[in-house]
Design a protein around this nucleic acid. Structure first.
Length: 160
DNA sequence: CAAGTGATTAGC
DNA sequence: CTAATCACTTGC
């Protein structure tokens, strides 16, 4: 279950890879239509999972920052070499590893048998907190936007 | 709290 | 070509 996300927008957002319409081989997937997965390598090691959200050629995306393990916990534990449930998926790099997501998933459609998202809980089951995004100090004032969203009191988010 | 880590990018 | 940068993690 997705418990924490961050939004990235093309215009007026210096933290976005597609800031001011920047288009490279890496972020090409962001220019696809909504419902496409954008995976890229961060710090040379971690695969980070994003969902493209807008229409074609408008590079908005949502970064999945943390999930709560529901199913397949044994597999996640072996992939992470850890048995501590709260540490399996509480960060964007870790959750990709736990789910077996790597750069090959880039540009994949969200509706197929390799990767998909389905609804699990009702919006009325929880409240959503907003905070500034993480790890984007280089973005200046844009780092202050409250574009990080997570489920109130959830145990599996990456940071408080 | 600091350093590792390597793909990606911009800058010669 | 080279150097700088980085949506993080882990271990000291």
């Amino acid at each position: 279950m997705i418990v924490e996300t961050e939004a990235y927008k093309s215009v007026n957002d210096r933290a976005s890879h597609a800031h001011l319409g920047k288009r490279t081989k890496r972020n090409e997937a962001m220019y696809s239509m909504g419902g496409i997965v954008y995976v890229y390598i961060c710090y040379g090691i971690h695969a980070l999972l994003n969902i493209v959200t807008n229409v074609k050629d408008t590079p908005d995306a949502v970064l999945i920052r943390a999930i709560e393990p529901i199913d397949g916990i044994k597999i996640m534990q072996s992939r992470l070499s850890s048995n501590f449930l709260k540490k399996l998926t509480s960060g964007p790099g870790k959750l990709s590893k736990a789910l077996g997501i790597d750069i090959r998933f880039n540009k994949e459609k969200l509706i197929n048998d390799k990767i998909w998202i389905t609804s699990y809980r009702n919006k009325s089951d929880f409240t959503i907190d907003k905070r500034p995004r993480i790890g984007i100090n280089y973005a200046g004032d844009d780092a202050n936007f409250l574009w990080r969203f997570y489920i109130h009191n959830n145990q599996y988010i990456s940071k408080i």
